[in-house]
Write a protein that binds this DNA or RNA. Sequence first.
DNA 1: ATGGGTGCAAAGGATTTGCAACATT
DNA 2: AATGTTGCAAATCCTTTGCACCCAT
Lengths: 139, 139
Amino acid sequence: MNQEAYDRLVSCGVRPSMQRLAIMDYLLKHHTHPTVEEVYQGISKEIQTLSRTTVYNTLRLFSEHNAAQMITIDEHRVCYDGDIHPHVHFFCRNCGHVYDLMDEEIPAMAQPKNVGGHMVDDIQLYYKGICHECSTHKS
Amino acid sequence: MNQEAYDRLVSCGVRPSMQRLAIMDYLLKHHTHPTVEEVYQGISKEIQTLSRTTVYNTLRLFSEHNAAQMITIDEHRVCYDGDIHPHVHFFCRNCGHVYDLMDEEIPAMAQPKNVGGHMVDDIQLYYKGICHECSTHKS
DNA sequence: ATGGGTGCAAAGGATTTGCAACATT
DNA sequence: AATGTTGCAAATCCTTTGCACCCAT
């Protein structure tokens, strides 16, 4: 079993279960910003009885407990990131891939701060454009 | 007629039409980050024959021509902003409202720049949390 | 008459909900 | 037993597509 997945769940106040551990494990091992469907496809081999509903519920639960990041950069589909360290996401309009940009600066959000009267607890910085792959391998 | 709406369309290379002018006019007069549905409801009184399809197509067209901003901060629904000056958006997890934060700094994006090999042409900075309304009028 | 714009109806997809079965304490 | 978790099927909601009509050049 994956100790890191277990620890993440416990430290974020999420009760561990077979499915939850498998899903967190998947997120920690695949830095591909998977969608619900991709997570489901990746895990259903191991857990034959897994349902999409559980993946939906679990990923939502994770993001509510800050055990994973929900990314809404693509209008068509939500995806998730097991890396909860704040970093910039880049979305390619052409191929739809989401890339991490670890070197870009992003204002840190150690604890909730008050901005214009509102309590801000999360900051997401999204870059959009055309990725390197798509701009070189143009058809 | 609204000269500002007309000018925005022309300067962004969007051919004006009855519907397009009405939709742009709505965006310029309502800084509420309306969804497709809200724009539709707001305009269908004037243009009785307006269809949702046209609103969908038109708002998409606007965002493709940078005549409006498409905002995907809320996982459930896309919304639009007629203000194309870069500014931070704040999303309230509780009531779902999207607020402008004009005073927050946002890295400017005058023209496309290369970041880690990718051509970035748009930057969006999203803050999330609980808005002032929701935190004071708690139930 | 040609090309773009509009709108209806239908299709498509993603996500949520209700509820019953199951697991775990 | 009680509580939380899972999963199926159905429902819902958002958005796109195909196609025909219409308008303006």
